[in-house]
């Protein structure tokens, strides 16, 4: 149970995207999310881990249960030390991709979660944090 409350997982290969999805699914189910929310969270995680693999080669995903007096939630952090994103606002636009993706990963992850922050420094890396709250 404790390793579900929080943990981290390195993203280094294509296979790790599948494993990350499975970890996030288990954590989201354990946190008490309903089926549709679980699917939203897992799909966002899939997009963001793939971004690490595709755009930064490697990085790490962390998850953590959130607990306050009135609500509970799940926080996922995706961190890499890749090339960074020169124009975050642009990257957040639907359809914008520097690769051959659909450019829906970042804007989609934002829509599927309740909070999302992107910190990126060119040459240093990128950190994306998403949070989903359980509306009890």
């Amino acid at each position: 149970m404790n390793d579900l409350q929080q943990g981290e997982f390195p993203i280094e290969s294509e296979n790790d995207i599948v494993s990350a999805r499975r970890l996030v699914r288990n954590a989201a189910v354990a946190a008490g999310f309903g089926l549709t929310d679980v699917t939203r969270i897992v799909t966002a995680a899939s997009e963001l881990t793939r971004n690490i693999y595709v755009h930064a080669k490697s990085g790490v995903m962390r998850w953590r249960f959130l607990k306050s007096e009135s609500k509970v939630g799940l926080e996922l952090t995706f961190e890499d030390s890749g090339l960074g994103i020169p124009n975050v606002a642009k990257a957040m636009e639907a359809g914008y991709s520097t690769g051959n993706g659909l450019g829906m990963g970042l804007p989609g992850a934002k829509r599927l979660t309740d909070e999302m922050t992107v910190h990126s420094e060119v040459g240093k890396g990128t950190t994306v944090v998403v949070r989903k709250w359980l509306t009890k």
Partner: peptide, 14 residues
């Protein structure tokens, strides 16, 4: 397609 997948795909903007 499962209902929850359809909701998610739509919300993702695909």
């Amino acid at each position: 397609m499962r209902a929850n997948v359809a909701v998610t795909v739509t919300q993702l903007g695909l």
